[in-house]
Design a protein around this nucleic acid. Structure first.
Lengths: 167, 167
DNA sequence: TCCATCTAGTTCAACTTTCAAGAAAAGGTC
DNA sequence: GACCTTTTCTTGAAAGTTGAACTAGATGGA
């Protein structure tokens, strides 16, 4: 399960293993960190917070369900449950889509916007502290490129890919 | 919730926002991708697979619960559930720790090892395809450094930090 | 020794996510 | 229009995760 070419599998090199492990550690710790920060300060997991942010940036503070799922890179099922919960909290409301009777718009409520306004500073601080404060400008640039490459690789253009929001 | 200095909060710059978003997209998509790959080919989520890998690299194919939680960056509670499930699958077995009667060792079974041997090539292929095949050698090096910095930042040396395996 | 405190690990309930199934509307095609 | 397929979104059950509470054993004094 470790080093170089056996049997036809192109195993990871020592450096690659090291990088992969660092990646898993960093992402696991960071997700845990932000989930806790937001659960404490905003009463919701990180991904739910991201949904509210998306809505706050959309025209009319609203978005079609599938669009929202696509932007958040999650399944529509997951989004349905999430929006149901956010609706119970009074931060989001559903509206029928006028042009397509199957469609629903998720709308950020005023209370939702207000809660976002209150918790944004703390969240930015946490992100900065965990990531941007620790990296040089050059590292930030390079990091952005790398993440872009990986993200793009996982959702190719001409697409038959198994993407969450199409499932 | 967007651009430069308002009210005293040091908001993210446009570039930083872009990088942060790319990070969230890449990590969300990659986690989804690997979870599916492993669920399909090994019948377990990615994090469970990681536990088996850890065990396979430990002396005697076994590890104390808390050590394992620490290496995987998860809570002991989560690990308890995970090991219970892996035990039901016959891939892990628990043994009492001889030196500390509170302790448990998680032991990789032969079937567990066998399943790992079978599924490792496919998993490496998926990781390579999503990440290493797309990055230059220089990018891999830089990426490793960055991830290391972030991971280390989240588990500082002289520690009072809120780390999952201490909760 | 006795006691308070700490550590290791588990368990329960609440919550989140996944997967498969399903209802309802939209879009062809004949 | 009738029929079939696709798209949109929801639901319910099973699986996984979290956070708090709990048991049992270790530890370090007084």
């Amino acid at each position: 399960m470790t080093t170089a070419s056996t049997g036809g599998t192109h195993w990871l090199s020592d450096e690659e293993q090291c990088v992969w492990r660092a990646y898993l550690h960093a992402t696991t710790l960071l997700e845990d960190h932000l989930d806790r920060q937001l659960q404490r300060d905003a009463g919701m997991p990180h991904i739910y917070y991201g949904l509210l942010v998306q809505l706050s940036q959309a025209p009319g503070h609203q978005m079609r369900m599938t669009e929202l799922a696509k932007d958040a890179k999650i399944t529509r099922s997951r989004l349905s449950h999430a929006v149901a919960r956010l609706e119970r909290n009074g931060w989001v409301r559903r509206e029928d889509c006028p042009s397509d009777k199957r469609g629903q718009n998720a709308v950020l409520t005023d209370e939702g916007y207000e809660m976002l306004r209150r918790s944004a500073p703390g969240h930015v601080r946490a992100v900065r502290q965990a990531m941007f404060d620790r990296l040089t400008a050059e590292q930030v640039r390079s990091f952005g490129e790398i993440m872009q490459v990986i993200a793009t690789g996982l959702e190719p253009e001409g697409t038959d890919a198994d993407l969450p929001w199409l499932r």
